[in-house]
Amino acid sequence: MRLFLLLLLATLLGAGSAPAQNLLADKNKAKTKTVLLGREPAKGKLKVVTKKPAAAKPATKKVEAVPVIVFKRTPCFGTCPHYEATIFSDGHVTYIGYRYVPLTGPHELKLPVATVNTILDEARRLNFATYEERYSQGSTDLPATILSIRQPNGQLKTVQAEEGTPPELEAFMKSVAAEIEKVSGGTTAADR
Protein backbone atom coordinates (compact mmCIF):
# COMPACT_ATOMS: atom_id res chain seq x y z
CA MET A 1 0.00 0.00 0.00
CA ARG A 2 2.80 2.42 0.94
CA LEU A 3 4.65 1.64 -2.23
CA PHE A 4 1.52 2.40 -4.26
CA LEU A 5 1.11 5.76 -2.50
CA LEU A 6 4.75 6.65 -3.06
CA LEU A 7 4.53 5.79 -6.74
CA LEU A 8 1.31 7.78 -7.07
CA LEU A 9 2.97 10.74 -5.35
CA ALA A 10 5.96 10.46 -7.68
CA THR A 11 3.66 10.37 -10.74
CA LEU A 12 1.74 13.39 -9.53
CA LEU A 13 4.94 15.34 -9.03
CA GLY A 14 5.87 14.63 -12.61
CA ALA A 15 9.05 12.81 -11.94
CA GLY A 16 7.91 9.56 -13.44
CA SER A 17 8.02 6.20 -11.83
CA ALA A 18 11.18 4.44 -10.78
CA PRO A 19 11.77 0.95 -9.45
CA ALA A 20 11.70 0.50 -5.69
CA GLN A 21 14.53 -1.33 -4.00
CA ASN A 22 14.23 -3.43 -0.86
CA LEU A 23 17.32 -3.43 1.26
CA LEU A 24 18.10 -5.10 4.54
CA ALA A 25 18.80 -2.27 6.95
CA ASP A 26 20.10 -4.15 9.94
CA LYS A 27 20.47 -7.52 11.56
CA ASN A 28 16.82 -7.39 12.63
CA LYS A 29 16.00 -7.59 8.91
CA ALA A 30 13.98 -4.41 8.98
CA LYS A 31 13.05 -3.34 5.48
CA THR A 32 14.30 -0.14 3.94
CA LYS A 33 12.65 0.97 0.74
CA THR A 34 14.37 3.51 -1.45
CA VAL A 35 12.46 5.16 -4.24
CA LEU A 36 14.42 7.25 -6.71
CA LEU A 37 12.61 10.30 -8.07
CA GLY A 38 14.02 11.82 -11.22
CA ARG A 39 17.22 11.02 -13.00
CA GLU A 40 19.72 12.69 -10.66
CA PRO A 41 20.18 10.52 -7.59
CA ALA A 42 21.83 13.25 -5.51
CA LYS A 43 18.96 15.71 -5.80
CA GLY A 44 15.76 13.73 -5.95
CA LYS A 45 16.23 10.84 -3.53
CA LEU A 46 13.34 10.04 -1.23
CA LYS A 47 14.05 7.44 1.41
CA VAL A 48 11.29 5.82 3.43
CA VAL A 49 12.42 3.56 6.24
CA THR A 50 10.16 1.02 7.88
CA LYS A 51 11.62 -0.78 10.87
CA LYS A 52 10.42 -3.27 13.38
CA PRO A 53 10.18 -1.78 16.87
CA ALA A 54 13.57 -1.85 18.48
CA ALA A 55 13.90 -4.35 21.28
CA ALA A 56 14.45 -2.85 24.69
CA LYS A 57 18.15 -2.58 25.34
CA PRO A 58 19.34 -4.52 28.37
CA ALA A 59 20.33 -2.40 31.33
CA THR A 60 23.96 -1.47 31.03
CA LYS A 61 26.07 -3.55 33.31
CA LYS A 62 28.43 -1.87 35.67
CA VAL A 63 31.88 -2.52 34.30
CA GLU A 64 33.91 -3.70 37.21
CA ALA A 65 37.61 -4.05 37.50
CA VAL A 66 39.07 -7.38 38.49
CA PRO A 67 38.81 -8.25 42.18
CA VAL A 68 41.84 -7.60 44.35
CA ILE A 69 40.82 -9.89 47.24
CA VAL A 70 38.63 -12.99 47.32
CA PHE A 71 37.87 -14.45 50.76
CA LYS A 72 35.94 -17.67 51.43
CA ARG A 73 35.05 -19.63 54.53
CA THR A 74 33.87 -23.16 53.84
CA PRO A 75 31.38 -25.22 55.83
CA CYS A 76 32.20 -27.87 58.41
CA PHE A 77 30.21 -30.59 60.20
CA GLY A 78 29.23 -28.02 62.84
CA THR A 79 28.03 -24.42 62.75
CA CYS A 80 31.00 -22.81 61.02
CA PRO A 81 30.18 -19.60 59.17
CA HIS A 82 30.04 -20.27 55.44
CA TYR A 83 30.34 -17.28 53.10
CA GLU A 84 32.42 -15.70 50.37
CA ALA A 85 33.35 -12.12 49.64
CA THR A 86 34.89 -10.66 46.49
CA ILE A 87 36.51 -7.29 47.13
CA PHE A 88 37.41 -4.65 44.55
CA SER A 89 39.95 -1.83 44.91
CA ASP A 90 37.18 0.79 45.29
CA GLY A 91 35.83 -1.04 48.37
CA HIS A 92 32.90 -2.63 46.55
CA VAL A 93 32.20 -6.10 47.98
CA THR A 94 30.13 -8.83 46.36
CA TYR A 95 29.09 -11.02 49.29
CA ILE A 96 27.24 -14.34 49.38
CA GLY A 97 26.24 -15.74 52.76
CA TYR A 98 25.42 -19.42 52.84
CA ARG A 99 25.00 -20.71 56.42
CA TYR A 100 25.54 -19.59 59.98
CA VAL A 101 25.88 -15.94 59.06
CA PRO A 102 23.33 -13.17 59.70
CA LEU A 103 23.38 -12.05 56.07
CA THR A 104 22.42 -14.90 53.73
CA GLY A 105 22.14 -14.78 49.98
CA PRO A 106 23.88 -12.37 47.61
CA HIS A 107 24.51 -8.80 48.76
CA GLU A 108 26.47 -5.76 47.67
CA LEU A 109 28.51 -4.29 50.53
CA LYS A 110 31.10 -1.55 50.91
CA LEU A 111 34.44 -1.54 52.71
CA PRO A 112 36.39 1.67 53.18
CA VAL A 113 39.09 1.99 50.52
CA ALA A 114 41.61 2.53 53.32
CA THR A 115 40.71 -0.90 54.72
CA VAL A 116 41.22 -2.55 51.32
CA ASN A 117 44.58 -0.80 50.97
CA THR A 118 45.60 -1.87 54.50
CA ILE A 119 44.82 -5.51 53.68
CA LEU A 120 46.84 -5.30 50.45
CA ASP A 121 49.74 -3.57 52.23
CA GLU A 122 49.76 -6.28 54.91
CA ALA A 123 49.77 -8.98 52.22
CA ARG A 124 52.82 -7.33 50.63
CA ARG A 125 54.52 -7.01 54.02
CA LEU A 126 53.95 -10.73 54.70
CA ASN A 127 55.10 -11.57 51.15
CA PHE A 128 51.81 -13.42 50.65
CA ALA A 129 52.92 -14.83 47.28
CA THR A 130 55.53 -17.02 48.99
CA TYR A 131 53.08 -19.02 51.12
CA GLU A 132 52.11 -22.56 50.15
CA GLU A 133 48.88 -23.08 48.26
CA ARG A 134 47.39 -25.31 50.96
CA TYR A 135 47.87 -25.89 54.66
CA SER A 136 46.20 -29.12 55.77
CA GLN A 137 47.04 -32.06 57.98
CA GLY A 138 44.35 -34.40 56.69
CA SER A 139 41.38 -33.66 58.95
CA THR A 140 38.07 -33.98 57.14
CA ASP A 141 35.72 -32.01 59.39
CA LEU A 142 37.58 -28.71 59.53
CA PRO A 143 36.44 -25.63 57.65
CA ALA A 144 38.87 -24.01 55.25
CA THR A 145 39.67 -20.35 54.92
CA ILE A 146 40.59 -19.51 51.35
CA LEU A 147 42.24 -16.18 50.62
CA SER A 148 43.20 -14.93 47.17
CA ILE A 149 45.17 -11.71 46.69
CA ARG A 150 45.86 -10.07 43.32
CA GLN A 151 49.62 -9.74 42.96
CA PRO A 152 51.42 -6.78 41.31
CA ASN A 153 51.91 -8.92 38.17
CA GLY A 154 48.12 -9.34 37.89
CA GLN A 155 48.03 -12.98 38.96
CA LEU A 156 45.73 -14.10 41.76
CA LYS A 157 47.63 -15.97 44.50
CA THR A 158 45.38 -18.31 46.49
CA VAL A 159 46.09 -19.91 49.86
CA GLN A 160 43.76 -22.45 51.46
CA ALA A 161 44.22 -22.87 55.21
CA GLU A 162 42.68 -25.64 57.29
CA GLU A 163 45.26 -26.54 59.93
CA GLY A 164 48.99 -26.17 60.37
CA THR A 165 48.91 -22.61 59.05
CA PRO A 166 51.86 -20.36 59.96
CA PRO A 167 50.77 -18.09 62.86
CA GLU A 168 51.33 -14.80 60.98
CA LEU A 169 49.24 -16.02 58.03
CA GLU A 170 46.49 -17.26 60.35
CA ALA A 171 46.40 -13.87 62.12
CA PHE A 172 46.25 -12.11 58.74
CA MET A 173 43.35 -14.27 57.55
CA LYS A 174 41.48 -13.61 60.82
CA SER A 175 41.95 -9.86 60.36
CA VAL A 176 40.57 -10.04 56.80
CA ALA A 177 37.59 -12.07 58.08
CA ALA A 178 37.00 -9.50 60.84
CA GLU A 179 36.87 -6.62 58.32
CA ILE A 180 34.40 -8.48 56.12
CA GLU A 181 32.28 -9.47 59.10
CA LYS A 182 32.11 -5.82 60.22
CA VAL A 183 30.17 -4.93 57.08
CA SER A 184 28.24 -8.20 56.78
CA GLY A 185 26.91 -8.32 60.32
CA GLY A 186 29.40 -10.76 61.83
CA THR A 187 28.70 -14.45 62.22
CA THR A 188 26.11 -16.37 64.17
CA ALA A 189 28.38 -19.27 64.95
CA ALA A 190 29.99 -19.63 68.33
CA ASP A 191 32.83 -21.72 66.94
CA ARG A 192 34.91 -19.93 64.37
Rank of each mutant, 00 (worst) to 15 (best):
M1P: 11
R2L: 01
R2C: 00
L5I: 05
L6K: 02
L7R: 06
L8Y: 12
L8D: 12
L9N: 09
L9G: 09
A10C: 02
A10I: 00
L12C: 06
L13A: 08
L13D: 03
L13T: 01
G14N: 04
A15D: 02
A18Q: 13
A20N: 07
Q21R: 08
L23A: 11
L23N: 12
L23Q: 14
A25L: 14
D26C: 01
A30N: 11
A30V: 00
K31G: 10
K31N: 11
K31A: 07
T32G: 09
T32M: 13
K33E: 14
K33Y: 08
K33T: 15
K33Q: 14
T34F: 08
T34C: 06
L36R: 07
L37R: 06
R39F: 06
E40C: 08
P41I: 14
P41Y: 06
L46C: 05
T50K: 09
T50A: 13
K52T: 15
P53T: 15
P53S: 11
A55W: 01
A56C: 06
K57V: 09
P58K: 11
A59I: 03
K61V: 14
E64C: 03
A65W: 01
V66R: 13
V66I: 08
I69E: 06
V70K: 07
V70D: 07
K72W: 12
R73T: 14
R73D: 03
T74W: 05
T79M: 03
C80N: 09
H82I: 04
Y83S: 00
A85W: 07
T86C: 07
T86K: 06
D90P: 08
H92K: 14
H92Y: 14
T94M: 12
T94P: 04
Y95I: 10
Y95F: 04
G97Y: 08
Y98C: 02
Y100D: 09
V101F: 02
V101M: 00
V101E: 02
V101N: 00
L103D: 13
G105D: 10
G105E: 08
G105M: 15
H107F: 09
L109K: 11
L109T: 12
A114Q: 11
A114M: 05
T115S: 08
N117K: 13
I119H: 13
L120V: 09
R124T: 11
N127V: 14
F128N: 06
A129V: 14
T130W: 02
Y131S: 10
E133T: 07
E133G: 10
Y135A: 10
Y135G: 09
Y135V: 12
Q137F: 12
S139K: 15
T140D: 07
T140I: 11
D141V: 15
T145M: 15
L147F: 13
R150K: 12
P152Q: 08
N153I: 10
N153C: 14
Q155L: 12
L156R: 03
L156V: 14
L156P: 05
K157T: 12
K157N: 13
A161E: 06
E162I: 15
E163C: 09
G164N: 07
G164W: 10
T165K: 03
P166C: 01
P167V: 04
E168N: 10
L169H: 07
L169M: 02
E170P: 04
E170A: 08
M173C: 04
V176E: 01
A177E: 06
A178I: 09
I180N: 01
I180T: 03
I180D: 01
K182C: 00
G185K: 00
G186T: 02
T187E: 05
T188F: 05
A190K: 13
A190N: 05
R192Y: 05
